[in-house]
Simulated scan of single mutants.
Amino acid sequence: MPAINYNLKYISLTVLIIQTTSMVLALRYSRTVQEDGPKYLSSTAVVMAECFKILACLCLVCYQEGGGIPKLFEVINTEIIGRPWDSLKLAVPSGLYTVQNNLLFLALSNLDAATYQVTYQLKILTTAMFSVCMLSKQLNSYKWASLVTLMIGVALVQMPSESKEPEKPLTATNQFIGLVAVLCACFSSGFAGVYFEKILKGTKQSIWVRNIQLAFFGVLFGLMGVFVYDSTAVLSDGFLQGYSKTTWMVVSLQAFGGLVIAAVIKYADNILKGFATSLSIILSTTVSYYLLDDFTPTSFFFIGALLVIGATFCMEWNHQNRQQ
């Protein structure tokens, strides 16, 4: 059983890197390609991805239970409807992710891009801190050094190139609001991820049942976002306005990504997820340079990429030594 989990751990991490890279590239393409009519609304795409995730998990539960529809309804009634308090626990990470997205929007509105990118990477350390506090993980000096190096590397990789257009000056009040917002988002991200990990690893319930519960609340909070930000556009041109084959591909990849992340958290942890996501940032940015021609690498990118790769190898080397 440990050997199986070990294999699933690295398989899920590899799939996450591929999925995240594909998602980023498809998302960039979908937002830049010129098509007739209005562009699709990102808020509705989030809702549709959660709906796809529920459908996928229902199929997986049905297969897991032997392929019978009656058995599927029995599982839903017993594990979800029959345990409302247990299901309600998943509203916490789902709600926190929604709050986090709004905080990031507030931060971007009050900070320059460089400060935002650097500060937001603190989520790597907050995730590690919550893992130690809530899951009693043991992180030695090598792991902490790897995490700090990873944080610096990701910040450098995502450092924006010099803009030709001067940005509007930001007041001290703007900067204070932006910093508070991004710091709260870092703690929200870390807590939500570790909280979800604790639920997944502390229960005998199927990972797919847990994802149904999480996605259900994701749909509810997502619809609230549609109402707040895009209700006028939806009433004018419809919920699925601007959807194309590319849009549906983005939605499918996003839904698939949610399932992969859950598998990574189940069989690995949030810290390793952070390393996999960081590697996917470098990969997607590099591929974007060659295929989409919408990125110009800077010296910061190359230095940051080396730091991320070095931190990843250092973490894996430390893990292998502890296994021996």
Rank of each mutant, 00 (worst) to 15 (best):
A3R: 11
N5A: 09
K9M: 04
K9C: 05
Y10G: 08
Y10E: 04
I11Q: 07
I11H: 04
T14Q: 01
L16R: 00
Q19D: 12
V24G: 04
L25T: 11
L25P: 10
A26D: 04
R28K: 13
S30Y: 07
E35V: 15
Y40K: 01
T44C: 10
V46M: 11
E50K: 06
C57S: 15
L58P: 13
L58I: 15
L58Q: 11
C59R: 12
C59P: 00
L60R: 05
V61H: 06
V61M: 02
Y63M: 07
G66Y: 04
G67Y: 08
G68D: 13
K71E: 06
L72G: 07
L72R: 03
L72M: 06
E79D: 15
I81E: 01
G82N: 05
R83F: 09
L88A: 11
K89M: 01
K89S: 00
V92P: 07
S94C: 11
S94K: 07
V99D: 03
Q100Y: 07
L104G: 08
S109I: 00
A113E: 07
A114Q: 05
A114D: 05
V118G: 01
Q121F: 06
F130V: 07
V132R: 03
V132K: 05
M134G: 03
L135N: 09
L139P: 07
N140D: 15
K143D: 14
K143F: 08
A145W: 13
S146H: 09
T149G: 10
T149V: 00
V154W: 02
A155F: 12
V157K: 02
M159P: 03
S161W: 04
P166E: 03
K168H: 07
K168D: 13
L170S: 10
T171D: 05
A172P: 00
Q175S: 10
F176E: 00
L183F: 05
A185T: 10
S188K: 01
F191H: 09
K198D: 05
L200A: 05
S206M: 01
V209R: 00
N211R: 10
L214V: 13
A215C: 14
F216C: 12
F217P: 10
G218C: 10
L220R: 08
L220C: 14
F221Y: 14
G225Y: 06
D230E: 13
S231G: 02
A233P: 09
L235K: 14
S236Q: 15
Q241I: 11
G242Q: 04
Y243K: 06
S244L: 08
S244E: 12
V250Q: 09
Q254E: 12
Q254Y: 10
L259C: 11
Y267E: 10
A268H: 05
K273Q: 09
S284L: 02
T285F: 03
S288E: 07
Y289R: 11
L291Y: 08
L291N: 09
L292V: 03
F295L: 00
T296R: 12
P297N: 00
G304F: 07
I309E: 11
F313R: 09
F313I: 15
R322V: 08
Q324S: 15
